[in-house]
Amino acid sequence: MIFINYIVMCLIFGTTFLAIKIGVDTGAPPFFSAGIRFFLAGAILLLWSVWRGKARLSLLLRKEMVLTGAALTFGVFAALYWAEQYISSGVAAVLSATGPLMIILLQNRASGQKLPVSTWAGCLVGTIGVILLVVPGVTISFSIMWIVASLVLLAGEFCYSAGTVYSQRVIRRFEDTSPIALNAAQMLYGGVMLLLLSLFTESVTPASILEPKSLLSLIYLTTAGSMVAHTIFYWLVSKTNPVFPSTWLYVSPLIALVLGALLYHEPVSLLSAIGGITVMLGIVLVNLKSLKQLRGTNPVRSSTQ
Rank of each mutant, 00 (worst) to 15 (best):
F17W: 09
I20Y: 03
G42S: 10
P30S: 09
S33M: 11
W51E: 13
I20T: 09
A41Q: 06
L18S: 03
T16R: 02
L47W: 09
G35E: 03
T26R: 11
P30C: 10
T26G: 13
I22K: 07
W48R: 12
I44A: 10
I12L: 09
G14K: 00
A41S: 15
S49M: 14
W48S: 12
R37Y: 04
G42H: 07
T26A: 15
K21N: 12
I20N: 01
G14S: 03
G42N: 11
G42F: 11
A41P: 05
L40H: 04
V50T: 12
S33W: 03
F13L: 12
S33T: 07
L40P: 02
A34E: 03
V24S: 03
I12H: 05
A41L: 14
F13W: 15
A41T: 07
G27V: 08
F39K: 05
F17S: 00
I44T: 11
P29R: 05
L40M: 13
F32A: 10
A28K: 07
V24E: 02
R37P: 01
I44N: 07
P30I: 07
I12K: 04
S33E: 10
R52D: 13
R52K: 15
F31L: 15
G35S: 10
F39G: 05
I36N: 01
A19T: 07
F17T: 00
R52A: 15
F39P: 00
F17K: 01
I44F: 07
F38A: 05
L45Y: 04
G14A: 05
F31M: 15
K21L: 09
S33Q: 11
I36D: 02
G14H: 01
A19P: 04
F38T: 00
W51K: 14
G23D: 06
A19N: 07
A28F: 10
A34K: 02
I44E: 07
F31K: 07
G53Y: 12
I36M: 11
I20S: 00
L47I: 12
W48Y: 15
K21M: 08
F31A: 14
L46W: 04
K21V: 08
V24K: 02
T26K: 13
V24I: 13
G23W: 02
S49Q: 13
F13I: 05
T26I: 11
L47M: 14
T15P: 02
W48Q: 13
L46P: 02
R37D: 05
G27R: 15
A28C: 12
A43I: 10
G53L: 15
D25R: 08
I22V: 13
G14Y: 00
I44W: 02
A43K: 13
T16K: 04
D25W: 05
G14D: 01
A41F: 08
G53C: 15
F13A: 04
V24T: 06
G35K: 02
W48V: 12
I12A: 04
I22L: 12
R37T: 02
W51H: 14
T16P: 05
A28L: 09
A28D: 06
T15H: 06
G35R: 00
T15N: 12
S49K: 10
T16N: 08
A19Q: 07
W51S: 13
T26Y: 14
I36K: 01
G53D: 15
F17A: 06
R37K: 11
L47S: 12
W48I: 12
G53I: 15
F31T: 10
P30Q: 11
F13V: 04
I20M: 11
I20Q: 01
V24W: 00
L47K: 10
